[in-house]
Design a protein around this nucleic acid. Sequence first.
DNA 1: CCCTTATTTAATAATAATTATCTAATAACA
DNA 2: TGTTATTAGATAATTATTATTAAATAAGGG
Lengths: 137, 137
Amino acid sequence: MGLEAVLRDMGCKVTPQRLAIYEVLKNCNMHPTAETIYNIISSDYPTMSLATVYKTLDLLKETGIIQELNIGGNTSRYDVIPKPHPHILCTKCGKIENMDISLSKNLVNKAKRTSGYDIQNFQLYFFGVCPYCRNSE
Amino acid sequence: MGLEAVLRDMGCKVTPQRLAIYEVLKNCNMHPTAETIYNIISSDYPTMSLATVYKTLDLLKETGIIQELNIGGNTSRYDVIPKPHPHILCTKCGKIENMDISLSKNLVNKAKRTSGYDIQNFQLYFFGVCPYCRNSE
DNA sequence: CCCTTATTTAATAATAATTATCTAATAACA
DNA sequence: TGTTATTAGATAATTATTATTAAATAAGGG
């Protein structure tokens, strides 16, 4: 289901701004901040406001098609969710990458059992030095 | 090695404020924010300033005896590190608890292999509804 | 034990990220 | 096409965090 359908489903309006922000996230693998998205979009949408970016990101989060990452620093980053996946941050250059591994069902089940929580989601962040930064030392 | 020794080791001064902030973290399992720590301490140290709390937390982070958690919201939380452990956030009441499980060596190795990173650390956050909140629905 | 000095505290200002407010613009639907 | 509720955009407000600076103080040498 595309973003348009999702928005209509929620009784929200389909606007060019919303579509554009989602497109940026889909086409960009750098896990941008709200401000980065704003900068990227500004050339095509000179009237776009940063507040609109924030409001739209909140909305997209609610729909569940994007997620917010809190991987340190003091700004949130955003990411489309094709399926849940861990992230890794290079502590030298600040780059954030997707990881193609998953938590074992086993671990998640153990988490449910030991915590007693009804677990709905998780975030796994690794921190380290990327190969490029390692070579340039 | 206690905090005093660690500080001396780094050539830093041992001050009552630093000890007090660390004590709060050790005796408090709620993963407090800087402001919460400030409030807790204020009764004993009426002259304590919030800036001192922040600076001390940064210092304690550097020593490696505490860690900063970025588990959403827009405020950091802090935690002593007896050993690395996952955390779980109740999305109803906002409580954050330690979890007594660990990532398998297997998974970490796979992460190293597939990413090529020199992995130094990780954070694993689960999100769900705690038993208490579930019952009071 | 006191003096000296570099470090730290505390108060305050500054910055940065995010949220709230409010008016003009616009998507949706009759 | 017109009406209306929603949204965008501009701006102000709020919140978290960091920087600045003068006064206070811990640590080591005499």
